[in-house]
Protein backbone atom coordinates (compact mmCIF):
# COMPACT_ATOMS: atom_id res chain seq x y z
CA UNK A 1 0.00 0.00 0.00
CA UNK A 2 1.68 3.23 -1.10
CA UNK A 3 2.15 6.41 0.90
CA UNK A 4 1.61 4.92 4.31
CA UNK A 5 3.84 7.37 6.04
CA UNK A 6 3.93 9.52 9.09
CA UNK A 7 0.54 11.11 8.50
CA UNK A 8 -1.15 7.73 8.47
CA UNK A 9 0.43 6.80 11.76
CA UNK A 10 -0.61 10.09 13.33
CA UNK A 11 -4.17 9.81 12.04
CA UNK A 12 -4.49 6.20 13.17
CA UNK A 13 -3.19 6.89 16.64
CA UNK A 14 -5.53 9.86 16.90
CA UNK A 15 -8.51 7.69 16.01
CA UNK A 16 -7.33 5.05 18.46
CA UNK A 17 -7.12 7.65 21.22
CA UNK A 18 -10.64 8.88 20.43
CA UNK A 19 -11.91 5.31 20.55
CA UNK A 20 -10.31 4.67 23.93
CA UNK A 21 -11.65 8.02 25.14
CA UNK A 22 -15.20 7.06 24.22
CA UNK A 23 -14.97 3.63 25.85
CA UNK A 24 -13.38 4.89 29.06
CA UNK A 25 -15.86 7.75 29.21
CA UNK A 26 -18.74 5.35 28.81
CA UNK A 27 -17.42 3.49 31.84
CA UNK A 28 -16.44 6.40 34.01
CA UNK A 29 -19.50 8.59 33.49
CA UNK A 30 -21.78 5.98 34.99
CA UNK A 31 -19.18 4.36 37.28
CA UNK A 32 -19.93 0.95 35.76
CA UNK A 33 -16.85 -0.65 34.32
CA UNK A 34 -18.33 -3.52 32.29
CA UNK A 35 -17.81 -1.79 28.88
CA UNK A 36 -14.05 -2.14 29.22
CA UNK A 37 -14.57 -5.73 28.11
CA UNK A 38 -15.22 -4.39 24.63
CA UNK A 39 -11.63 -3.18 24.35
CA UNK A 40 -10.34 -6.63 25.23
CA UNK A 41 -12.69 -8.17 22.66
CA UNK A 42 -11.57 -5.93 19.85
CA UNK A 43 -7.91 -6.26 20.68
CA UNK A 44 -8.25 -10.03 20.69
CA UNK A 45 -10.40 -10.13 17.54
CA UNK A 46 -7.62 -10.30 14.89
CA UNK A 47 -5.59 -12.80 16.92
CA UNK A 48 -7.29 -16.00 15.64
CA UNK A 49 -6.71 -14.81 12.09
CA UNK A 50 -3.04 -14.23 12.73
CA UNK A 51 -2.50 -17.53 14.51
CA UNK A 52 -4.35 -19.54 11.91
CA UNK A 53 -2.59 -17.66 9.13
CA UNK A 54 0.68 -18.90 10.61
CA UNK A 55 -0.58 -22.43 10.96
CA UNK A 56 -1.76 -22.68 7.36
CA UNK A 57 0.76 -23.74 4.79
CA UNK A 58 1.36 -20.79 2.46
CA UNK A 59 2.99 -22.97 -0.19
CA UNK A 60 -0.20 -24.92 -0.62
CA UNK A 61 -1.29 -23.23 -3.80
CA UNK A 62 -3.93 -25.70 -4.94
CA UNK A 63 -5.54 -25.36 -1.59
CA UNK A 64 -6.45 -28.85 -0.58
CA UNK A 65 -8.50 -28.15 2.45
CA UNK A 66 -5.90 -29.09 5.06
CA UNK A 67 -4.49 -25.62 5.41
CA UNK A 68 -7.62 -23.90 4.27
CA UNK A 69 -9.86 -25.26 6.98
CA UNK A 70 -7.55 -23.74 9.57
CA UNK A 71 -7.78 -20.38 7.81
CA UNK A 72 -11.56 -20.63 7.76
CA UNK A 73 -11.58 -21.44 11.46
CA UNK A 74 -9.59 -18.30 12.14
CA UNK A 75 -11.97 -16.20 10.04
CA UNK A 76 -14.94 -17.73 11.82
CA UNK A 77 -13.49 -16.85 15.22
CA UNK A 78 -12.68 -13.33 14.09
CA UNK A 79 -16.21 -12.80 12.84
CA UNK A 80 -17.46 -14.14 16.16
CA UNK A 81 -15.32 -11.69 18.14
CA UNK A 82 -16.26 -8.67 16.04
CA UNK A 83 -19.97 -9.19 16.54
CA UNK A 84 -19.30 -9.97 20.20
CA UNK A 85 -17.93 -6.44 20.59
CA UNK A 86 -21.30 -5.04 19.54
CA UNK A 87 -23.48 -7.67 21.16
CA UNK A 88 -21.89 -7.47 24.60
CA UNK A 89 -22.88 -3.83 25.28
CA UNK A 90 -26.31 -4.53 23.81
CA UNK A 91 -26.83 -7.42 26.23
CA UNK A 92 -25.60 -5.31 29.15
CA UNK A 93 -27.87 -2.43 28.18
CA UNK A 94 -30.88 -4.66 27.71
CA UNK A 95 -30.62 -5.84 31.29
CA UNK A 96 -30.00 -2.29 32.51
CA UNK A 97 -26.55 -3.18 33.77
CA UNK A 98 -25.29 -0.18 31.80
CA UNK A 99 -27.21 2.80 30.48
CA UNK A 100 -28.24 3.24 26.88
CA UNK A 101 -25.85 6.17 26.38
CA UNK A 102 -22.98 4.11 27.70
CA UNK A 103 -23.87 1.39 25.22
CA UNK A 104 -23.83 3.76 22.25
CA UNK A 105 -20.54 5.37 23.24
CA UNK A 106 -18.95 2.06 23.93
CA UNK A 107 -20.03 0.54 20.61
CA UNK A 108 -18.76 3.54 18.64
CA UNK A 109 -15.49 3.58 20.58
CA UNK A 110 -15.03 -0.14 20.07
CA UNK A 111 -15.62 0.16 16.34
CA UNK A 112 -13.08 2.97 16.13
CA UNK A 113 -10.50 0.86 17.96
CA UNK A 114 -11.14 -2.14 15.76
CA UNK A 115 -11.05 -0.01 12.61
CA UNK A 116 -7.67 1.32 13.71
CA UNK A 117 -6.28 -2.14 14.26
CA UNK A 118 -7.58 -3.37 10.91
CA UNK A 119 -6.37 -0.40 8.90
CA UNK A 120 -3.01 -0.56 10.65
CA UNK A 121 -2.72 -4.14 9.55
CA UNK A 122 -3.77 -3.24 6.01
CA UNK A 123 -1.38 -0.31 5.64
CA UNK A 124 1.70 -1.87 7.13
CA UNK A 125 1.58 -5.50 6.19
CA UNK A 126 4.27 -6.89 3.97
CA UNK A 127 3.17 -7.88 0.51
CA UNK A 128 2.59 -11.53 1.19
CA UNK A 129 -1.15 -11.94 0.96
CA UNK A 130 -2.24 -14.15 -1.91
Amino acid sequence: MPSAGLKTIIALSFVLAVGFLLVILSCALWKVYYPLLVVATYVLAPVPNWICGRCANPDDFVESSGGNAVLDLGRFCTGFMVVMGIALPAVLAHSHLIEMGAMVMCVIGGLLIYGTIISFGMFFQEEQEF
Binding site: F76, G79, M81, V82, M84, V91, S95
Partner: peptide, 26 residues
Amino acid sequence: VYGAGALFSLAFYVLIDSAVWSHSPL
Protein backbone atom coordinates in the same frame (compact mmCIF):
# COMPACT_ATOMS: atom_id res chain seq x y z
CA VAL B 1 -16.99 -17.39 6.50
CA TYR B 2 -16.79 -14.12 8.44
CA GLY B 3 -20.55 -13.78 8.11
CA ALA B 4 -21.09 -17.28 9.44
CA GLY B 5 -18.99 -16.44 12.49
CA ALA B 6 -20.94 -13.24 12.95
CA LEU B 7 -24.28 -15.04 12.74
CA PHE B 8 -23.15 -17.67 15.24
CA SER B 9 -21.99 -14.95 17.59
CA LEU B 10 -25.35 -13.24 17.23
CA ALA B 11 -27.11 -16.48 18.12
CA PHE B 12 -24.88 -17.01 21.14
CA TYR B 13 -25.44 -13.51 22.44
CA VAL B 14 -29.18 -13.62 21.86
CA LEU B 15 -29.25 -16.61 24.18
CA ILE B 16 -26.86 -14.98 26.66
CA ASP B 17 -29.17 -11.97 26.60
CA SER B 18 -32.16 -14.06 27.59
CA ALA B 19 -30.18 -15.67 30.42
CA VAL B 20 -28.85 -12.36 31.74
CA TRP B 21 -32.23 -10.71 31.48
CA SER B 22 -33.85 -13.61 33.27
CA HIS B 23 -31.70 -13.08 36.35
CA SER B 24 -31.80 -9.29 36.29
CA PRO B 25 -34.20 -7.32 38.47
CA LEU B 26 -36.27 -6.53 35.38
